[in-house]
Design a protein around this nucleic acid. Structure first.
Lengths: 173, 173
DNA sequence: AATACATAAGTGATTACTTACTCAACGGCA
DNA sequence: TGCCGTTGAGTAAGTAATCACTTATGTATT
């Protein structure tokens, strides 16, 4: 990985996350990266290839985060870690996550289904805690976490830590 | 309002909602509306004017929906109506709502804050019901409703009515 | 000499928008 | 009634700018 190649990746991530994939031209990426436009196509073949390279870079981030929850055996901890998911995202990773959420609205055939194993784990946790309708309870919490993440990444959420504690209390975890 | 002008509005709404504002060219809109491209600019001045006209068309939809909740005095009914919000959206209005949610991610300076009065009304409702931390309770419900709406409009929500009843039960409303 | 990195200057296609032009409908007036 | 002048709806054919992408070529390192 050369310096220039990395510059391209970082600039593209930042621009895609702030302006969107379609609204970001390859020439803008090249300019911000301090690189000729042709170099983008030498390294990534086309614009979509550049996007895929960016997503691949962050793939491990997603896997680690979810594995941490799915491999947890204590049900209360499964729920606690799910609730904490959006609140522990590091500032430096905001661009990557904002891009993920943006793409879900921008690209037509972008289905993630990375949440499926998480939904299973959560559902089991609620079942172990004798909660009625554990699948619905799980779905509900994941929809709430999605809403929180969206607000957070769009910068619409002020009393962040207050809400976090409130939720941990509510769920008694 | 001539037929052709209305055709432009309807075609643009459908295309913007499905492909996004940036990814939809004025020539595509004109073609789908069966109209010359220049007519778009005669009626709406520019592409952004076309978008604004579309949003203005649906403005009353939003106002009516929110007024129904904010003017409600019975606290339990305020909560019930808020929960039901995403579940009662008519199929024919999906394009309009999908566009609203899409724009929140696509346009940089798109702040709605149409939710503020709703958050106040909900907060008051929880207070009247003696709930501790009514503002956080209100925020939490609105974030959940946002998550549900997103999933619904993206077509990711299957057991819709089951979830609806589950939530009404949970909140005892 | 070979190879990978890098660029300048292109390509045709598409973008939002404009220009110059019809054509039908209308109201006032002799 | 008959004619004129204005106006708004509508279009075909442009415009310069930008799009994703290519080609030809140069340079540095091994």
């Amino acid at each position: 990985m050369t310096d220039k190649k990395e510059n391209i990746l970082l600039s593209a991530l930042q621009l895609f996350a702030s302006d969107g994939f379609n609204a970001t031209s390859t020439s803008k990426v090249a300019k911000q990266a301090g690189v000729s436009e042709g170099l983008i196509f030498r390294h990534f073949e086309n614009k979509e290839g550049l996007l895929k390279a960016i997503l691949a870079m962050g793939e491990s981030k997603i896997k680690d985060l979810f594995a941490e929850i799915v491999l947890e055996t204590e049900p209360k901890l499964v729920i606690r870690k799910t609730i904490s998911l959006p609140f522990q995202v590091k500032e430096e990773d905001y661009d990557f996550w904002r891009l993920q959420f943006k793409l879900k609205w921008e690209l037509k055939n972008y289905v993630s289904q990375k949440m499926d194993p998480l939904e299973m784990a959560l559902s089991n946790a609620f079942k172990k805690l004798q909660k009625p309708k554990p699948e619905l309870e799980s779905k509900k919490l994941l929809l709430l976490v999605d809403g929180i993440s969206s607000a957070l990444l769009k910068g619409d959420l002020k009393n962040k830590e207050e809400l976090h504690q409130f939720l941990l209390n509510k769920y008694e975890v």
